[in-house]
Nucleic acid binder design. Structure first.
Lengths: 336, 336
DNA sequence: CGGCCGCCTGGCAGCGCTGTCCAAAAACCG
DNA sequence: CGGTTTTTGGACAGCGCTGCCAGGCGGCCG
């Protein structure tokens, strides 16, 4: 709190007006190389940093954006934070990370209050906040730029980064099919998540493309939690004939199913194949390591920040690659 | 960016001077109940929020603190964020979350630059940043308040919240001892972490309290990573006689050891007991679920924020309870 | 060679609040 | 009832920057 240097002190030492220092700091043109260098030297020497509060107040921009999320998964949150943060940092922006309760009645006014209070220049939205019409409308009305890290590319609502959940689900289903599985169950995530519906659609499409009738009885509802994966698996284990493979909507559910299989003494992958989705930390920590889809979470967030802060209008929507990670929970279908 | 209301507009509508509105917002005295109520009504009606930048610039405080961390574990980061955030929010402070590369040569000046730039009112430090003398000195010199979420309570350096790693390690070792284990290995974390040394000390103390000589050959170095846990386990598996239990320095390492045991076809807990430390998400996701110590990560961060922002000088250091979680990776020592 | 334009620099207002000082009104006292 | 304190609210400066405008200087063109 003490001897914080100010722009005026810098200007005095450098022997220029404080306005010129401001120009250097903001990388404006019309400053001679010579002057610029001298100012930069003094700045470095004093370890001077302009007051963020003052620039925000005086200027038209705050160099501040927020990342909004409502997701209980530490893995997911950690990686979108880290991706978004990296790009923001590179571009000289500060990132405010804000968990939001998307079901709170005052969610929209609360977000707008944050926008006001912090003079935000933009917002990065992650699911399920990407699917809240009232929020998007309020933002549009305010003409506040935002990017959606959205599951599924839809043409509405401007900027978005995404991956192809449908195609990924098809790939993993195909992988199972190619291993000879015919009774493949799908343990789905919550209805409210677009990603969950997309993965189900991919599963179904691939099945049908291989001439296998879609059987609703093989789709078990869950909520992306470890516990719901275990419950789904136990339901499935009671079936006769038992499915030979379970495709879980995410890794947590797959880990739950895997634990349930261990508990029921069903050998994985010999008697049962299990596949997940996300390639979270869990995928490598369980035994056997999980076959899953690597979702480029970090990159999605990086691209989102990039799109909003540095993007051109040319590509308002970016789709990133996923990757099928074949590990050890999937194997040939048991005979019979 | 549009019609952001200001304090002046509020004052006009409420029919008082704008200074009076400021008083109400800051909960100062010398405002009549009547006036206060009227102002608050207008504030609510306009959904007015004072500009954070302006208060920071004008006032002596920024109502802004930062949480600094340098930890690769999503689980840990997520929970310290959420605990610190909750308390800051309750007290009307904003929390800046900042990953820091503690090994970067410019770490200290970079942190100080952040402090300047954001006019921070204080800092919450998590390991290993809690153990960096140059940082603490720079902060002291600046008279910037900070709290350390510190492993091990040491009397230096003011405010801290902690848990008793030594006692916790003793408990888990005792648990193993009581199950009849005598050859208990310890897979330790990185030297640089105080927690790692504390856990080793607890392991050793408990062993010796039970009249079992400490055997350095049973301590395998690791770095808190899943992979290092697996490596440590494989080293141990080559020993003859093999240890009957492995106490890993954290859950990641325990999960690695567990996977190695599965791979080597060693039954857990029948032929080998494994214990972890942290009670992270992993502990319940692996099979069998892990016996471990629940570390109150979230609460530690909550208490840290509380200590700094609302704390009295009476208790500068807070110690929180841990808990032994006996699950299914520990069992009676195999006979022979 | 005069005028105009582009480059570089400085001056000054003002962003939206808080801190300090001061005045008026109300409450209290001998 | 005058004088004094306490309460209440207003005036004003200024936090550290950016936006806008003005001005000096040199080069280039007709």
């Amino acid at each position: 709190m003490a001897g914080r240097p100010t722009i005026k002190e810098v200007s005095k030492i450098a022997g220029v007006s404080f306005k010129t220092v401001s120009r250097v700091l903001n990388n404006e043109k019309h400053v001679s190389e010579e002057t610029r260098r001298r100012v930069e030297e003094v700045v470095a020497q004093l370890n001077f940093r302009p007051s963020h509060a003052a620039r925000t107040l005086a200027g038209r921009r705050s160099f501040q954006v927020a990342l909004l999320y409502d997701n209980p998964s530490p893995y997911y949150v950690f990686h979108i934070q880290s991706g978004a943060l990296e790009r923001c940092h590179e571009l000289g922006y500060r990132l405010l990370m804000q968990p939001i309760d998307s079901s709170a009645p005052d969610m929209v006014p609360d977000v707008m209050a944050l926008v006001d209070e912090a003079h935000l220049d933009g917002l990065i939205l992650s699911p399920p906040l990407t699917e809240m019409p009232e929020l998007l409308e309020a933002l549009d009305k305010r003409k506040l730029p935002y990017v959606r890290i959205a599951p599924g590319l839809r043409k509405d609502h401007g900027l978005a980064t995404t991956m192809d959940d449908v195609a990924a689900a098809r790939e993993i289903t195909r992988h199972l099919l190619q291993l000879g599985h015919r009774r493949i169950a799908f343990a789905r995530g919550p209805e409210s998540h677009v990603s969950s519906a997309d993965r189900l659609a991919g599963y179904r499409q691939e099945l049908e493309a291989h001439g296998i009738a879609f059987d609703p009885a093989l789709v078990i509802a869950g909520d992306y939690s470890f516990a719901s994966g275990g419950a789904a698996a136990r339901t499935l284990f009671a079936r006769d004939p038992r499915p030979t493979a379970i495709f879980a909507g995410n890794d947590d559910m797959a880990a739950g199913a895997l634990a349930a299989a261990h508990e029921a003494d069903i050998a994985v992958p010999e008697a049962l194949s299990i596949a997940g989705f996300d390639d979270s930390d869990l995928a490598r920590a369980v035994w056997p390591p999980l076959t899953t889809i690597r979702q480029p979470v970090r990159e999605l967030a990086y691209a989102a920040a990039d799109l909003m802060l540095a993007g051109t209008a040319v590509t308002p929507q970016v789709m990133l690659e996923h990757e099928l990670m074949v590990r050890a929970t999937t194997g040939p279908a048991p005979r019979g």
